[in-house]
Structures are given as structure tokens and as C-alpha cells.
Design a protein around this nucleic acid. Structure first.
Lengths: 334, 334
DNA sequence: CGGACTTTCTGCAACGATGTATCCAGACGT
DNA sequence: ACGTCTGGATACATCGTTGCAGAAAGTCCG
């Protein structure tokens, strides 16, 4: 059916292996021979069969990306960038949605998905580090997004604690004292929710403001959930003058609910988020948030993973990279 | 290294081919034999090598999805759904971003990307139908999203004209007479921009309102571009009392710019979009838009493509599917 | 009981590439 | 002239599966 290396070899009057050698930039080939092969390739319109190459070589030049939900704007933007960066280095990205379910994360880590890819960019939400360490397999694995202070893993993350602290400090500097924080439970200390909550508490402590557990509201990191959470807060007797949504989607949902209920933002309640998704800039009022260095995260994580795959990076202990952050002060919390 | 079918065969005391037969649900296998094989598989933790299977069988159980930019919310939401539907039928989705560039669309249609997948969900933005028809190759191809009235292609689309007409009619019914339309050029007649513009003009005509080309503003379908476009409109002397953004992202960018400039939405200018992305519901004011049946598009397009791949659907002419739409009347244009 | 089927299982080739070993021709040194 | 070395090409095995053909054993029927 399709043109194979054999056809090319026949057309060029050389052996199959010589064609392979030309394609793999083998050093010792006479220019004339190389040219014959290249001409035959062009004439026949030959294209290498990636499946066969992959079977033989054990490499697929595909990176796996595991995230909970591609429709979440932060993940969509991240995935888009990761793909662009990977593409520049000659790799494709295969995405798997885990829905933050343990079973799905496990199967992405161990199952056929893993096999198809040369390495994994992994955002564990349900799985414990120890479990991941036990099932990581032998191919490179780079943890993405949340801080796992664990030398067993390569890790590219953001300054969750510092950034959350900085933005909370900004709210405090604006005179807010009752800052509701949505998207974590009081007992969270690890994972993105826990770390951002930790930053929030650190900022309060630094400002000498008491921590009130009643202001901490659990919520999924989605717009609808953020809206529902702030709705409950409004229905309760708990007073607050600011909302810190632990991601932008949730914060935007919360802001919407506030406005619908006639609460003025930022006059009555200031709102801040986390992620700096594009949507935040164009919300009304535009959303104050923190940009966690997504560009840097995309470039360094793909770079690190590919370096591991290609053997360029050989550190025994996990490489830890933390991207810088920047506050984006906008109208929702000036 | 990894466990192969050969290892399983040895452990079970049967031939390699019998293991293969068990895995492929071959009919004539004694229950006892089958069990022996299954036990061996379980004991050794065997997992089929998909690459080898793919090489041998010519099928990868992967669908290709070509879109311009995964960070665009409509595409992100669509991709997420497509993946979920495909997953339910045992297929994976491999995504390729084209940036709406002709060269990228061509290489997705013909290059290695195509080879890796059993069929393609294709959103052509730069390529002409004739070009696509000439380079489509032999594997199934389903066109996605825009209407190409062409029996050569399978096509799953939305009612671009009818939906645009309906939402424009809604704006007219609200008393708006100077409706700016952003995201198309006056001369566009095909593609999503052209079709939606056609619907807009049809609604004007039906209401006896003159079409004013000055109200048609070209723009990329992104938030920032929508904001810039409406900014130019405001700077010009052209008066308008409504904005119809040809997609939600653009409409939301436009609405943001209006609000920033002190234009009241919907009092001074009503705003409507197209797509009903999740963000529209939670914008402030929430965005009036049209839901183009994304769920239906996702299910039918993946269904059709897989049916083609598996030979269940055999129609000679292209199958055309048009999802229904629904208006979502919200605060930005009540 | 013998031939014609079925059922159950097996061996070999093939998918299209790459790694290893090898071979041949010419250059070089002695 | 002879052995050695190296550049340039080749043959063969191999990656892990599935398709095809067929063998062996059991079933059925006249």
C-alpha cells in the first residue's frame, strides 16, 4: 500500500539498510549515494512509518500529559503551550483526562497510555506521592504543577505558597480584614489547595490578622462551584470583605455570584484569583490574580522531560524547578 | 524487558497464537484453555504492546483532532468532550494545533500525524475544500464545525446560519437597530464567519432593517481581538446599539472593552455571542449567546468517525449531520 | 466404519523499521 | 607484495503482534 523503505531502496538501487542510514544521518555515506536515496524518497513520496520505527526503536517521540479536565481554562492554556514547546523539539503530546480520579491516574501512570509515550507530564490530584513512586515504571516522569517536596521526582512547579501569600498580602494592604478563601479545606496542607491556603495563612499571620476557619470554604475548582460556594457564604451569617479564589475559574464564578446578588466588586467585596488565565484580563471587573509563570513552566517541564528521555539530563535525584510569579493587580481588587 | 505474549504462552503452556486468540476473542477456544491463558496473563501482569499491534493490524485506535488553538475555550471544551466520547468507545484522541495555518493543516492531513491515527476530525480554517478533497488520503475523515455543502465529505456541523439569524432576530426584537457584527469581513460567505454573517443579514432583511457594511468589523476570534475591534468601532463615528460577536470569546472581549469605556451593557449596547462556552454563563453581565449543540456535535462526530473506521457506516456520499441550537438569553441582551 | 465437518490449537510469515555483524574495496605502511 | 586499517555498503535477525494455512482431535451421518 504505502511506500516503504524497501521500495525506496529498490528505486535507488541500494540496500534497505542504506536508506535507513541516510534517514538516520549515519556518518559514512558517499554524497552520491545519499543523493540517490534522497531523490528516490522525493520521487516516491516516501514517509517513514512511525509505528514500525517505534516498535523497533522503543521510542515514540510522544509525551504523555495527564490532567484532570482539558476544559478547565488553566489546563487548556497549559496544554496548548506544552504542545507548542514539544512540537518545536520534535515531539507530540498525547493528552489523557483523569477527572481527578485515582483509578484513571493509576492507569495513565501504568497502563497502555504510558506505553505509547516516551515520558509523562503528570498532574497528580488523587494519587499519593508514595503510590506514584511505587508505580512510576522506568520511563521518565515529570511532576507538574503542585509541590511535592520529594527528591524521588522531577518536578516543575510554581511558588504556590509565596504567590498566595503575596496576593493575600495585597488584599490586606487594601484594608481587607475578612478574606474568605475558597477552594480548600482547613485541614489541607499539601497539594495546590493546601499550599495556597498555607500562603494565605502566612500572610494573615504576618499582618497580625487572626485566622478564622469559618472563612475557609471547600469547593471544586470550577466556575459553578465557586459561585455556589460564595452563595453559601452569603447565605450564612459570616461577614467578609474579600474573596480569594484558589484558582481563577472558581474566583470568576464567585465574582459572578456576588455581582448577581448585588454585592459590589470591589467596593463591598474584593476578589482575587490565581492562575492569570486569559479570561481574567477580560472579566468585568477584570480579575486581580497571580500569574504563576505558565510560559516558564511549559518550557522547563517539556525541556526537562525531553532531556531525561534523551539522556541529556542525568541527575540522580529529582530535579526541582520552581517558576517565578507575578501579581496582576486589576480592577476586582485594586 | 516487558512481558510479551511469548512469556504468557510459555507460562500457560500453549502457543503464542493461542494467547493472541484469547485476547482477540476468537470463538473456538476451550474454556479451560482460555482460563489458563487468562491466569498466566494476570500472574505475569502482561499488557499488550499497542505499537506492535498497531504495526501488524494497521489500526492504532487513535483519532486525530485538528484545530487551530487548544487554548481557545470553545475548542478546549469541544476537545474535552470528544475525548470523553471517544474514550467510551475505546479510542484515544491525538490533538494537533494548526494555528489556522495552511501548511500545518496540510501536514496534519497528510503527514505523520495522519499515519498515527485511524481517522481524522478536521476543522479546516485555511484549506479550501477542493484541496482537502485532493489530499484526503484513504482513511476516514470527518469535517467538523463549519458547513461545507459538499457530498465528498462527512460533516458534523451546527446551524450557523439559522442560529445567527435567530440571535440577531432576538436583538432586533429587543429594539436594537444598529447591530455591529464582529468577526467577519463583508465579503465572507463561506466558513463559520461567512455563514454566521449570512444569518445576521437574513435576520436584518426579515425585519426590514437596512444592512450597513460599516457595522461589519473584521477580527480574529479571540478576546483581545474582540476588544480591539470594538475599541475601533467606538473611536469611529459609527453609532451602534448592539454587538453580535461571532463567537463568545470575541464577544466577551468586546463586552469588556465596552464596560471599561463606560458604555453600559445592555442599556447602551446589548452584546450577544455564539458558542455558549461555560465562561459566558459566568460573565458579568452574563452573555446572551447561542448554544450550538456541542454535546451532540461531539457524540455524533466521534460516532460517525468510528463507524467509518470500523466499517459500520458505509454511505457512498458524505454523511451530513447538523446539530440543533438553542438561544441562551442572558443579561447582556435580555 | 469411513469420509466430511467442526472444533481447537499451532507454526510460520509478515507488518516496516533499526542494530549488529560482516564484507568488500581501496589506502596505507613496511 | 602483504597485512592492516577504515570508509562505505550490505545481510540478517529482531521488535511483539496478527493473518493465514493447516494439523490434530473430536463429532456427525449415512
Amino acid at each position: 500500500m504505502a511506500v516503504t523503505m524497501n521500495d525506496v531502496a529498490r528505486a535507488a538501487g541500494v540496500s534497505l539498510k542504506t536508506v535507513s542510514n541516510v534517514l538516520n544521518d549515519y556518518e559514512f555515506i558517499r554524497p552520491a549515494t545519499r543523493q540517490k536515496v534522497l531523490d528516490a524518497i522525493a520521487e516516491l513520496g516516501y514517509e517513514a512509518n512511525l509505528t514500525a520505527r517505534s516498535l523497533r526503536s522503543g521510542k515514540s517521540r510522544m509525551l504523555g500529559l495527564v490532567l484532570s479536565d482539558l476544559s478547565a481554562p488553566y489546563y487548556a492554556e497549559l496544554a496548548s503551550r506544552l504542545m507548542t514547546v514539544a512540537s518545536a523539539r520534535g515531539y507530540r503530546v498525547l493528552i489523557e483526562q483523569s477527572a481527578a480520579l485515582e483509578a484513571n491516574e493509576l492507569s495513565a501512570l501504568q497502563g497502555p497510555f504510558r506505553q505509547l509515550t516516551d515520558g509523562l507530564l503528570f498532574t497528580p490530584l488523587a494519587l499519593e506521592p508514595d503510590t506514584v513512586a511505587g508505580r512510576r515504571g522506568s520511563k521518565p516522569l515529570v511532576m507538574l504543577g503542585e509541590h511535592i517536596d520529594d527528591a524521588r521526582f522531577d518536578l516543575v512547579t510554581m511558588k504556590n505558597v509565596g504567590a498566595a501569600q503575596a496576593i493575600t498580602a495585597h488584599l490586606l494592604a487594601g484594608g481587607r480584614r475578612r478574606i474568605a478563601v475558597i477552594g480548600a479545606a482547613v485541614e489541607d496542607h499539601t497539594g495546590s489547595p493546601g499550599l495556597r491556603l498555607t500562603g494565605y495563612r502566612a500572610a494573615l499571620a504576618a499582618a497580625g490578622v487572626d485566622f478564622d476557619p469559618a472563612l475557609v470554604v471547600q469547593s471544586e475548582w470550577r466556575r459553578d462551584a465557586g459561585a455556589a460556594a460564595v452563595g453559601e457564604l452569603l447565605d450564612s451569617e459570616i461577614g467578609f470583605d474579600a474573596v480569594f479564589g484558589l484558582n481563577d475559574a472558581l474566583a470568576l464564578g464567585a465574582m459572578h455570584e456576588l455581582l448577581v446578588r448585588g454585592v459590589k466588586v470591589p467596593q463591598d467585596v474584593a476578589v482575587a484569583g490565581f492562575d492569570d488565565i486569559d479570561e481574567a484580563r477580560f472579566a468585568s471587573p477584570s480579575l486581580t490574580t497571580v500569574s504563576p509563570g505558565m510560559e516558564e513552566i511549559a518550557e522547563r517541564s517539556v525541556g526537562l522531560l525531553i532531556d531525561r528521555i534523551e539522556g541529556t539530563e542525568t541527575a540522580d535525584r529529582g530535579v526541582h524547578i520552581e517558576a517565578g510569579f507575578e501579581l496582576r493587580i486589576r480592577a476586582s481588587a485594586p
